[in-house]
Write a protein that binds this DNA or RNA. Structure first.
Length: 475
DNA sequence: GTAGGGTTAG
């Protein structure tokens, strides 16, 4: 009876999922079909004919057209992508930008970007600043600094003039690459065409100088930006402060922090500012100073958040001071800015990471008993570690309890597969069925690397007919 | 445009 159930649930879970996928394709296929058909018929100057298509444009449709262009029609795909992004009814999400880079391997084949721009030129296409911005965004996603610069330089040939946002995209790419010579050249160049570096340009440059170890240049720029009238704010201050902290000058950092507190207004340190200084103190093992800053931020009316607390907990657990971590949590919870669930979840995570699995498990159970909801990371990390130590059944019990009290946050999807495999291996068939049932309800599929091993175990049951179903359903 | 634990979907 149990054997029957396991196989059946695995089979069902796969088929429910497949049904959803088919359904989705059905609704998007017709639009995608129309757009793709037009692309095939008119490979030259596709933009002119795409406008004539009367079909709904949404992210599913865009993804489907892109997928159909695979392999080999990368230029067509990118041109469709750019055209779609220019339509007023639709906007690409960052996900779609990443998707197109991944599908057409834009990073590995940067020539794609250049070919598109050259094709626009050869076909005398109408190209706007917005078109160029989208191409620059693609370069940014694919981290193509040289190609982005090439696009920027190409703009005058289309009678277009780059704006500050476009310069910022290219400057960011060179800053990330650590090429501050080029970044600086571009920033100076802005002035020559009557563009003014804004606060974003300056923050990028300050961060770039700090990362490149050129702290004095970062400070110089910070002072200079005020001279030429760019109003500074807590983001610019924080970028500089972070650089100073990372260079190890903690006294200088505290001085600057004091300056920000004194200045107030837009320069007032915020939770990010304080947290970054706290993090530096923690990394240096200076926990007294780090905790002191928590009091200082509270006194200045800035409440700690989840990141602040987890940074301090990490520091305290790292030096073995778990008791102090508990005291800290009491204090923060009393302050009311971070929930007890978030605080104790961070502690569970750090206890696991500092090899105190027993303490972590105890705390985790206590949280459930007292109605404190653990977050997704705490669940994922403790489950994985317990499974690693062979405590498969304990994990199942915890999981079941969390499900029953409705406390489940999103956990890593591979946990289900690992746990099911563990339960099968240890012949806990009742629990395996229950887990399969939970998976079925949630539409969670088995992950490919575990399918074989689970099937192998089921084969021991020697129920050929059911095994066939599982085999066909899962592979 | 600033700190930063994991994944999910689009």
């Amino acid at each position: 009876m149990q054997r029957f159930s396991v196989s059946r649930f695995l089979w069902l879970s796969v088929h429910v999922k497949n049904f959803k996928v088919c359904n989705l394709h059905f609704t998007t296929n017709s639009s995608a079909e129309k757009y793709y058909g037009v692309l095939q018929k008119n490979p030259k100057n596709v933009e002119r004919t795409l406008v004539t298509v009367k079909a709904k444009l949404d992210s599913n449709c865009v993804n489907e057209v892109l997928r159909r262009c695979l392999p080999g029609q990368s230029q067509m795909a990118i041109r469709f992508f750019i055209w779609a992004g220019l339509q007023s009814s639709y906007r690409h999400s960052p996900f779609t930008y990443n998707k197109v880079c991944e599908l057409f391997k834009v990073k590995q084949n940067p020539r794609i970007v250049i070919d598109v721009v050259e094709a626009y030129r050869e076909e005398s296409c109408v190209v706007s600043v917005k078109t160029m911005k989208m191409i620059l965004n693609l370069c940014e996603k694919a981290k193509l600094a040289n190609e982005a610069l090439w696009v920027l330089r190409k703009m005058p040939e289309f009678n277009l003039r780059p704006d500050t946002i476009m310069y910022n995209i290219v400057i960011r790419l060179f800053c990330v690459r650590g090429d501050m010579v080029m970044a600086d050249k571009l920033m100076k160049e802005m002035g020559l065409i009557s563009l003014y570096p804004d606060i974003i340009t300056n923050v990028l440059m300050i961060k770039g100088y700090c990362n490149a170890g050129r702290l004095e240049d970062a400070c110089g720029l910070f002072k200079a930006m005020r001279r030429y009238g760019c109003v500074t704010n807590s983001v610019a201050y924080s970028a500089l402060l972070d650089g100073i902290c990372r260079s190890g000058s903690m006294e200088r950092a505290l001085e600057l922090l004091g300056e920000m507190e004194k200045e107030g207004g837009d320069c007032r340190p915020n939770v990010v500012t304080y947290t970054s200084v706290i993090q530096s103190f923690c990394e240096k093992g200076m926990m007294v100073e780090a905790l002191g800053l928590l009091d200082r931020m509270n006194a200045c009316g800035c409440a700690p958040n989840r990141v602040t607390v987890s940074t301090l907990i990490k520091g305290l657990c790292g030096e073995g001071n778990v008791n102090e971590a508990y005291k800290l949590i009491d204090k923060v919870i009393a302050g009311g800015s971070v929930s007890s669930g978030d605080c104790y979840s961070s502690l569970v995570v750090e206890l696991v990471r500092t090899n105190r699995l027993g303490d972590a498990e105890k705390l985790f159970s206590e949280m459930l008993v007292s109605g404190v909801k653990p977050d997704g990371l705490a669940c994922s990390i403790i489950f994985k570690e317990l499974i690693l130590w062979g405590k498969v059944l304990d994990v199942f019990r915890l999981y079941e309890e969390i499900e029953n009290i409705g406390f489940l946050s999103s956990i890593d999807s591979d946990i289900y597969s690992i746990l099911l495999l563990g339960l099968c291996q240890e012949s806990h068939s009742v629990e395996a069925v229950k887990l399969a049932r939970f998976m079925l309800e949630k539409g969670i599929r088995l992950q490919a690397p575990y399918v074989g091993k689970i099937v192998e175990h089921l084969k021991k049951f020697q129920d050929k007919e059911l095994l066939d179903i599982v085999d066909h359903g899962l592979c």
